[in-house]
């Protein structure tokens, strides 16, 4: 795999729930439809202000240099969907970043969705079907997050762009393993020269990190499924010069599966 990380930006912002007028039908039936004889609920200018995932897309894309837009593959990944399916946010992200890409959303895999999205991007790159891809990883707090001790009332997102090449940021491997296998897989990643950095998500087991030749960075749990990716954005500049191998590791507590993305860095 020669997919290479090019740009990484992130956002963490207080949640901004959709206005009541856009929450959808009272019976919850609000999936890209209006009732027969009904009228769509438009803002006066016909362009409602983006909310939810679309708002995060705006906040992320505004940070990306124009030279890094124009992908041929746009992937949107999330662990938990928005309640409303009115807006096709993957299409919106496509438009905001050039409009010429094959775009779709990857979900249904819990914290593994962004990892599989990188795997898909890598497959398109390896088969010559993509030379410039873009991945947005988004999470919106549930509406009752402020009242729940186990949920952060924040929305978070990460946008990564990839091109083709070797060297710093090259994607080496994407793999999912059971918890019993995690320690051995991480041990295999310890390089002969230099140290391995393990970026562990909130549910990960720090005991699986090799005692020799590896360092641990614990990602924050402020966003569901975005923590390790946000840490990558915040620290990549320092990590790529300090570690030959960086592995992002997020563990799904429900399935007891750990998802790993192995990146080769400049220090190799």
């Amino acid at each position: 795999m020669t997919l290479r990380l090019r740009t990484a930006v992130s956002v963490l912002t207080p949640s901004a729930p959709a206005p009541a007028s856009r929450l959808g039908a009272p019976d919850g039936g609000d999936d890209a439809v209006v009732e027969v004889g009904g009228t769509p609920d438009h803002e006066p200018d016909g362009q409602p202000a983006p909310t939810g995932h679309a708002r995060l897309v705006d906040l992320l894309v505004d940070q990306v240099p124009e030279a890094d837009t124009g992908p041929d593959l746009v992937l949107l990944a999330y662990a938990r969907p928005e309640a409303s399916g009115f807006k096709t946010v993957a299409s919106y992200l496509n438009m905001r970043t050039g409009g010429d890409a094959h775009s779709l959303a990857l979900c249904g895999q819990g914290l593994g969705a962004p990892f599989s999205a990188v795997r898909v991007a890598g497959a398109y790159e390896r088969t010559g079907q993509s030379s410039k891809s873009l991945l947005a990883i988004l999470d919106c707090a549930p509406a009752d997050a402020a009242d729940r001790p186990d949920a952060s009332p924040a929305d978070s997102g990460v946008l990564l762009t990839f091109d083709t090449g070797s060297g710093a940021g090259a994607v080496d491997t994407v793999v999912s393993v059971g918890s019993a296998e995690l320690a051995s897989r991480l041990a295999e990643l310890v390089p002969e020269g230099g140290r391995l950095l393990v970026v562990l998500g909130p549910g990960g087991d720090p005991g699986a990190v090799p005692a020799q030749g590896a360092d641990l960075h614990r990602a924050s749990g402020e966003g569901h499924g975005t923590g390790v990716w946000s840490a990558l954005v915040q620290h990549w500049t320092e990590w790529e010069s300090a570690y030959p191998v960086v592995v992002l590791c997020d563990t799904d507590p429900g399935s007891d599966t750990s998802h790993l993305l192995v990146l080769r860095a400049a220090a190799e």
């Binding site: 959808g24 999936d31 309640a83 096709t88 990857l106 979900c107 249904g108 895999q109 599989s116």
Partner: peptide, 28 residues
Amino acid sequence: LHGGRSVGPETAQDIKRLLGLENATTFA
């Protein structure tokens, strides 16, 4: 349909389990 009220986030994994495809990488 892609709103969370129509398809739950666990649906793909449930399909995998019900089909007995435990070793298949599964997503939606």
